[in-house]
């Protein structure tokens, strides 16, 4: 039997921003940084990706990040994490282990959480990438960001962007309905400071407000 820890997820919609929490401790969307914007034709990017392609050496990759189309010149070996941090000035996403073992690099791709350190940037062209910078709406924090502030869900803060991205996905998957279930489904994010109790409280609060 499939245990209670692993129920079939319901299509819970993503929570709306909580208007009470305004403190913006996360860097805002990348557009402010004034980096080169690619032609805003996603459709074009998507069409390109449908064809058989060969890429060698550095080429212009087109990525959809936080609702914007960005171009980045990179070799196929460049990970999404390095593309974000080193080339697109989106340093909110953190590099912990660089080997899929800590979750600090968690981002959403087409709404699903993944480890950007094991994702090649060339392979996610045409997909919607959401990083921690893309959660807040203007000055309004995403409810998960607000809950982390309220519950003090961090100490040094290094794992926090990954925890928050994972928490957002955990709630939208419907995997935060009990404490035990939430612990299991947040287990892909390690916290060396041991802020787990408060992280759990934050994710559970957002889930319960549903």
């Amino acid at each position: 039997m499939v245990s209670d820890l692993f129920p079939t997820p319901e299509n819970t919609s993503e929570p709306q921003p909580d208007s009470n929490a305004r403190r913006s401790f996360m860097k805002q969307a990348g557009g402010i940084l004034g980096l080169a914007l690619a032609p805003p034709l996603v459709a074009q990017a998507e069409r390109l990706t449908a064809y058989s392609r060969t890429i060698e050496g550095a080429t212009d990759l087109t990525l959809r990040i936080n609702g914007q189309t960005r171009t980045v010149r990179a070799e196929p070996r460049v990970t999404l994490l390095d593309a974000l941090r080193e080339r697109l000035d989106l340093t909110g996403t953190k590099k912990g282990c660089d080997h899929g073992q800590c979750g600090a690099c968690t981002v959403l791709i087409d709404g699903q959480r993944v480890n950007s350190c094991l994702t090649l940037a060339v392979m996610v062209q045409g997909k919607e990438i959401t990083t921690i910078e893309g959660l807040a709406q203007g000055d309004e924090l995403h409810p998960m960001q607000a809950a982390f502030l309220k519950h003090d869900g961090f100490q040094c803060g290094y794992c926090t962007p990954g925890q928050i991205m994972s928490g957002v996905a955990c709630v939208s998957e419907g995997h935060a309905k009990t404490d035990d279930q939430c612990r299991e489904w947040m287990s892909g994010n390690l916290c060396r400071c041991g802020a787990y109790a408060n992280i759990l409280a934050a994710v559970r609060e957002v889930a319960s407000k549903g």
């Binding site: 499939v2 959480r113 998957e173 489904w185």
Partner: peptide
């Protein structure tokens, strides 16, 4: 289903 969910992490299983 049980064996799959016992492996890796939610992020890794999404990849």
């Amino acid at each position: 289903a049980l064996a799959l969910n016992a492996g890796a992490s939610p992020q890794l299983r999404n990849m």
